[in-house]
Simulated scan of single mutants.
Amino acid sequence: MPNNYDAAAWFYDGLAQLVFGKALINAQRFLVKHISAGKKILIVGGGTGWILEEIAAVCPSGLQLVYVEISAKMLHLSKQRNCGGNEVKFVHAGIGDYQIEQSFDVILTPFLFDNFAETRVRSVFRQLHLSLKPNGLWLLCDFQVEENFAGIWQKIILQTMYWFFGWLCSVETRKLICMDAFFRAENYRLLSEKTFYRGFVISQIYRSTKFSG
């Protein structure tokens, strides 16, 4: 099964911290602080689930979360997390195979789209876009390669990651797709963004401008 991190579940967080320090954690914390009480939230690709505890620290109760993860081992770890008083529905599925039956106030996609080839990026983006309520927030963080001198070492790290996780976890792509064009095509408004790890990691908060009805 492509893009399944079962084989990396037991060491993934440790490896991420070894390579990136707290950059990946801080990138997601930047997003989580924009979550407010009483919201319905879709999380896609949450990994080991530590982000559920970060969300509970911001909103201890009153949230309804749907947590979609393709890796059974990652999902098992996620279920052990302290989610506070929030209601969490855990879904073992790839997002492309999951039938979304409700709309959400917030969609959170941490390091999701870097796993996909462009065809799957298009289909998953469309699927999630249709499930986001008008005026809803899309919280995105992922890697980026800058068009400057830093892009040289960023490309080297990125290709090393693609080689390793392609071999170990069957990640389907070797090319990072820039997501900005997808959001611009659907007239999303970029509210805020911040970079981490010398520009290699970017967190962005988008607001949907689509009309209800």
Rank of each mutant, 00 (worst) to 15 (best):
P2G: 00
P2D: 14
N4H: 05
A9Q: 04
F11Y: 15
F11M: 11
Y12S: 13
Q17W: 13
L18A: 15
L18Q: 08
K22F: 10
A23D: 12
A23K: 00
N26M: 10
N26W: 11
N26F: 09
Q28W: 05
R29F: 06
L31W: 02
V32F: 09
K33W: 06
A37N: 15
G38M: 08
K40R: 15
K40N: 13
K40H: 13
I41G: 02
L42D: 06
I43C: 10
I43A: 09
V44C: 10
T48Y: 08
T48M: 12
T48E: 07
E53D: 09
E53Y: 07
I55H: 03
A56R: 04
A57S: 15
V58E: 15
L65N: 02
A72D: 10
M74C: 09
S78T: 08
K79S: 01
K79E: 09
Q80W: 09
R81I: 10
C83G: 06
N86T: 09
V91T: 06
A93T: 06
A93R: 14
A93V: 06
A93D: 10
G94Q: 06
I100A: 04
E101T: 14
S103F: 06
S103K: 12
F104Y: 14
T109G: 09
D114W: 01
D114I: 03
N115M: 12
F116R: 00
E118A: 12
T119L: 13
R122L: 11
S123W: 04
F125P: 00
Q127H: 15
L128Y: 07
K133N: 15
G136V: 03
C141K: 03
F143I: 06
E146P: 02
E147C: 02
A150T: 12
G151W: 09
W153Y: 15
I156K: 11
I156R: 13
L158H: 01
T160K: 12
Y162T: 01
W163D: 07
W163A: 13
F164V: 12
G166R: 11
G166F: 08
W167Q: 13
W167L: 14
W167G: 02
L168P: 05
C169Y: 01
V171M: 10
T173I: 08
L176W: 07
M179E: 03
D180G: 13
D180M: 08
A181L: 07
A181M: 09
F182I: 05
A185Y: 01
N187D: 10
R189H: 11
L191P: 03
K194D: 07
K194W: 04
T195I: 00
F196G: 01
F196N: 00
R198I: 13
R198A: 14
V201C: 05
I202M: 09
S208R: 07
K210Y: 03
F211C: 05
G213I: 10
